[in-house]
């Protein structure tokens, strides 16, 4: 995958994810209407490919306004990833040399790999996760299960243990997938299924779309590393 192809794919997916987010904001409060309408307009310009630098600069400014408006992220990790992608894309367009542009886009890919590895590692070193108790607690009393029925999954410790270890192993082993493109595609498919499950069970739909937006950066970095080595 070339850098231009990866940038274009990321921009299209990012535009889709941010338009969805913005429409959700517009439906819940009228206060920030001008801000989110402007954000949608910037996404449409970005998706059209006519002025990527200008639209990304505008989206970066809007991300700062939103951080002030909500005094941090509105939706935790998904907003953090949105900010990261917007700023990495902006630098990948604005920096003066190809090496610096590649570094900015490669930084995004490295952060996505870390997003899996670090969250797997912190679970691996936590005995509560290794015994499955932590996932039982997620279902039992956390704010995330989308229905009361789902809370009953906490009553199945073996199932929670199996799910917890599946998540831990996938996340900590994710960086290995960077050595081979076929392996990476399989890992990304598993990752997408993982985010889809989180969207269904915990209502984390924004994570699904925004992590997908960052996937082209990993496909590009993997091919770039292979090219550099061979």
């Amino acid at each position: 995958m070339t850098l231009d192809d990866a940038l274009l794919a990321t921009e299209l997916l990012l535009a889709w994810a941010l338009i969805l987010q913005s429409c959700e904001h517009l439906s819940t409060t009228k206060y920030d209407k001008p801000l989110f309408l402007l954000r949608i307009a910037c996404c449409l310009v970005l998706a059209s490919g006519t002025a990527p630098l200008l639209s990304l600069a505008m989206l970066a400014v809007i991300s700062l306004i939103m951080l002030h408006r909500f005094q941090g992220p509105y939706n935790g990790g998904s907003d953090r990833m949105s900010v990261l992608i917007v700023w990495c894309l902006l630098f990948a367009h604005a920096l003066p040399t190809m090496g610096l542009r590649e570094t900015a886009f490669g930084y995004l890919a490295v952060q996505v790999v870390l997003s899996y590895f670090v969250s797997g590692w912190v679970k691996l070193i936590n005995p509560q996760w290794r015994t499955g108790r932590a996932l039982q607690d997620v279902f039992a009393f956390s704010a995330y299960p989308v229905s009361e029925e789902l809370r009953r999954l906490a009553d199945f410790p073996r199932l929670c243990w199996g799910m917890a270890w599946s998540v831990i192993l996938f996340e900590v082993m994710f960086p290995i997938a960077m050595i081979d493109q076929a392996l990476l595609i399989i890992a990304l498919a598993i990752g997408a299924a993982f985010h889809l499950a989180n969207a269904c069970l915990f209502g984390l739909n924004r994570f699904f779309w925004i992590w997908l937006s960052a996937y082209p950066s990993m496909l590009w970095l993997q091919s770039r590393i292979v090219d550099a080595l061979w």
């Binding site: 991300s63 700062l64 951080l67 002030h68 005094q71 941090g72 992220p73 990790g77 907003d79 953090r80 990833m81 900010v83 990261l84 700023w87 952060q111 870390l114 997003s115 670090v118 969250s119 912190v122 679970k123 936590n126 509560q128 996760w129 932590a134 607690d137 997620v138 956390s142």
Partner: peptide, 16 residues
Amino acid sequence: LLLPGLIPSWKFFKAI
């Protein structure tokens, strides 16, 4: 406000 977005910690569900 911006730094945790540019240098995230990614410690999702570290502890419940």
